[in-house]
């Protein structure tokens, strides 16, 4: 059920402004890929174009091809909502639904779409998703409490549980640990290691150690200057990017000489 991602000459626009230019990348199924780069270089914008969340913003659009296995998600006639059921997303700040309990949050993908689940089937989904997000033992006795009552790290794992509950093919993570303490970050990183058995994971991070710890491949994005489009500079195995990058900009960035 895990799918590969291939971008071909992908340009991402905000209105007339070209935010990310000419990305070509092949992301293998069941792998963890990290996007690194300075702020404003288009990592998040590119990530959001992977599940057509980008076009939620007024005037935002994408040119080029983006293949999920062999299907172009930007082909005419493709329903963005269907794409998003296949490509889940975890956001920078934990955002459980405040009106829902923990259990309802996990089932949100089903409930919000109006799916009818039997009680036992729903219980199975909740337990499986929460176990998958390493949260089951912490919340199993209070599933009916509000999701917003959890700690920040637990809320983020709840959001991951919510995402894996609908069984996507790909999980996108937009700086999932930037609002969390080191212990919660460790929990999420361990979780990413487990999730890659079943899912293709793409993670944006500002933390280069995190990229080195969790990912197999790393893409470095950079921007030539304010108002210029962001570009993918280098994409290679993580240990190559961090130890022996071929591009000078990458070398300067990962060694801390700028950015």
């Amino acid at each position: 059920m895990s799918k590969s991602i291939t971008a071909k000459d992908l340009n991402v626009y905000y209105g007339d402004f070209l935010a990310v230019e000419g990305v070509n990348i092949e992301i293998a199924a069941r792998s963890v890929t990290a996007f690194i780069g300075p702020s404003g270089c288009g990592k998040t914008t590119f990530l959001r174009s992977l599940n057509r969340m980008h076009e939620v913003l007024p005037g935002a659009r994408v040119e080029g091809e983006l293949l999920l296995d062999d299907d172009n998600i930007y082909a005419p006639g493709v329903d963005p909502v269907t794409v998003r059921t296949m490509v889940g997303m975890v956001f920078q700040r934990p955002n459980p639904f405040p009106t829902m309990s923990i259990r309802e949050n996990v089932l949100a993908g089903y409930k919000l779409n109006g799916a009818r689940l039997s009680r036992s089937r729903a219980d199975e989904i909740v337990e499986e998703a929460l176990r998958g997000a390493n949260l089951w033992n912490e919340v199993k006795d209070r599933l009916d409490n509000p999701g917003s009552g959890l700690s920040g790290g637990q809320q983020q794992r709840l959001c991951i549980a919510r995402t894996v509950a609908v069984k996507p093919d790909v999980i996108l993570m937009d700086e999932p640990c930037s609002a969390l303490d080191p212990i919660s970050t460790l929990a999420i990183e361990d979780l990413i290691g487990e999730l890659k058995q079943d899912y293709t994971i793409v993670i944006v991070t500002h933390n280069m150690q995190q990229a080195a710890r969790v990912s197999e491949k790393t893409a470095f994005f950079n921007i030539a200057g304010t108002g210029k489009p962001g570009k993918m500079i280098e994409y290679d195995d993580t240990h190559v990017i961090f130890n022996n990058p071929s591009n000078e900009q990458t070398e300067r960035y990962v060694s801390g000489k700028f950015g």
Binding site: M53, F91, T99, A108
Partner: peptide, 27 residues
């Protein structure tokens, strides 16, 4: 209503009218 909640709902593959009806208005 925070935009994050709408995006969280969209990212789960929920349509806009359902997002409004079941996430935005209840919040």
């Amino acid at each position: 209503v925070p935009n994050e909640l709408r995006e969280a709902s969209y990212a789960l593959g929920v349509r806009k009218w359902r997002t409004i009806l079941k996430v935005v208005i209840p919040t």
